[in-house]
Design a protein around this nucleic acid. Structure first.
Length: 514
DNA sequence: CTATGTAAACAAC
DNA sequence: GTTGTTTACATAG
């Protein structure tokens, strides 16, 4: 077996952890996080009350009073937190775009602990000014369902904190629609947005001004005043040095957070690693680069931007998703097998680009896929000329394409891709879409679901004529299936189990099955 | 079982 | 050769 894994494994250092002595564990990337609203996005883990979730979320986006915050904080479940920026440390460094600076001026120093998170909340390219968050939007007419009866919280609070789904909107860089009076249509629109946002692996945005921060070693300072070239987020003291033993995903995150627009090209990420981590210590091998690429590809926190700069003709730029900026990186693992495509859906219209290339991995993968096909549901498979692609389709997608598996959403708990049969009663389903979970507190139990098997993702046919298992090697035999999954083993099963979204299912059905 | 790291195949560039 | 995608496998917890 060609897997001499040991050589690369740092021993003790690895375990002790260069940072806080905390080895990355299941749910976190290091140190326990302070109980503040930034991250906390609710992580609808089974242990987290929906109330807390909504509250935290609401607060998060509206930044009302500190008192209210603390109140909510008490409701939040620390365990629900996930990896966040810098292990929960406030992310204070100034981004080069200056947005953060602008923002922080708004608040007094004593509120920094709280409001500094606003920096994280700011999308890389937004121009929210100081007025954005201070006012609890009276213009938030949106209703969000049956929250009250479930929360049991004072209505005033409820009213004070409109649905996260709404509040999140401003952070969508491309958001232009008015969400103010939407009923179900509004939610559909949210779905659309969500689709738009998460299905596209290549964002079409303007990054004409990207310049590699690493073109010159001395240009890395994040401020004009010439801060030290080292990580701008100098936490003075124990955190001054980037803990080098963080997982790749987290390190990439940090690298990107330091970059203007949270965007870098691969080469720069390499450089950052060389400068700031010891992953690249071994100059002999390129394994660390492979790992970086692997993480970029697999972790939903990173997205490609299809506007390579002049300097970066090769390859895309990689950017943190807004979601990642807000909530931090999540485990790459969850994107790996649960979603063969981290975007959660595939297209019949593969991108004619690189991304469509190595689509199915190597020969071993191919063999395995062959094996799977031969050993399971032979009739359902066929060879597909278009291997799965992470690319967004070039035609408008049917609603069925709204994969509920936006990998950014969900609890951050292990049982992330939650599904609850009860949610089928919910028009919007119990998908793990954060928007839904937050907006529809009517599905407070949606966390209990079954952690679906790794392969239980949704893959709806884009065309009624398409065979169901086209290029779908994953719902595979090599992955254990839960008893439920094994029940019928049909497509509907998988859809239901994977997404738990009646909405998706119904729509899909409506569109295609009729 | 999950999270992570690594190797590697492969295609497109 | 580089970049990006994917699978497989090892290892630790």
């Amino acid at each position: 077996m060609p897997h001499p894994q040991s050589p690369h494994r740092p021993s003790s250092a690895d375990l002790t952890g260069g940072f806080c002595g905390v080895h990355p564990s299941k749910d976190t990337f290091g140190a326990p996080m302070p109980l503040h609203p930034q991250v906390p996005l609710p992580s609808p883990s089974p242990h987290t009350s929906m109330v807390a979730s909504n509250m935290a979320t609401s607060f998060d986006n509206h930044k009302t009073s500190k008192e209210e915050l603390t109140g909510f904080m008490n409701l939040t479940d620390p365990n629900a937190m996930q990896w966040s920026a810098y292990n929960g440390q406030p992310f204070n460094h100034m981004s080069q775009d200056g947005n953060s600076c602008q923002y922080s001026l708004q608040y007094s120093p004593e509120s920094t602990e709280i409001y500094s998170y606003g920096q994280n909340l700011l999308p890389y390219n937004n121009n929210y000014n100081l007025t954005y968050s201070a006012v609890p939007s009276s213009s938030c007419p949106r209703t969000y369902t049956n929250a009250p009866d479930l929360t049991g919280l004072p209505t005033t609070i409820q009213e004070s904190y409109p649905p996260a789904a709404y509040q999140i909107e401003p952070q969508r860089p491309h958001e232009t629609m008015d969400l103010s009076d939407q009923g179900i249509n509004g939610h559909l629109m949210e779905l659309r947005e969500d689709y738009d946002y998460y299905s596209s692996t290549i964002k079409h945005e303007e990054h004409s001004d990207y310049s590699s921060p690493y073109d010159s070693d001395v240009t890395r300072s994040s401020t004009p005043s010439g801060d030290p070239p080292m990580p701008p987020h100098n936490f003075k003291g124990e955190e001054a040095a980037i803990d080098k033993e963080q997982p790749y995903a987290q390190l990439i995150y940090r690298a990107l957070m330091e970059a203007p627009s949270r965007t870098m090209i691969l080469r720069d990420i390499y450089d950052w690693f060389q400068k700031n981590t010891d992953k690249a210590a071994d100059k002999e091998t390129k394994g660390w680069q492979n790992s970086i690429r692997h993480n970029l590809s697999m972790n939903g926190a990173f997205e490609k931007v299809d506007h390579p700069s002049e300097e970066a003709k090769k390859g895309f730029m990689w950017r943190l998703t807004d979601e990642a900026i807000r909530e931090g990186v999540k485990s790459t693992t969850r994107y790996r097998s649960k979603l063969p495509n981290k975007r959660g859906h595939r297209s019949h219209h593969p991108q004619p680009q690189r991304q469509a290339s190595g689509a199915k991995g190597g020969q071993a993968a191919r063999r395995a896929a062959r094996m799977r096909r031969s050993t399971r549901r032979e009739d359902a498979y066929r060879s597909d000329p278009y291997p799965m692609s992470r690319s967004v389709p070039d035609i408008p997608m049917p609603l069925s394409a709204y994969s509920p598996h936006s990998p950014y959403f969900g609890s951050g708990s292990d049982t992330d891709l939650d599904y609850v049969p009860e949610d089928f009663g919910n028009p919007l389903g119990g998908s793990n879409m954060e928007l839904f979970n937050r907006s529809y507190t009517g599905t407070p139990l949606s966390q209990q679901s079954t952690a679906v098997g790794d392969s239980a993702y949704i893959e709806l046919p884009m065309n009624p004529a398409d065979p169901l298992f086209t290029n779908s090697p994953s719902p595979s035999a090599d992955e254990p299936r839960t008893p439920e999954e094994q029940g019928q083993g049909g497509w509907g099963d998988e859809v239901a189990l994977a997404g738990g979204s009646q909405f998706v299912f119904d729509v899909a059905y409506g569109e295609y099955a009729v």
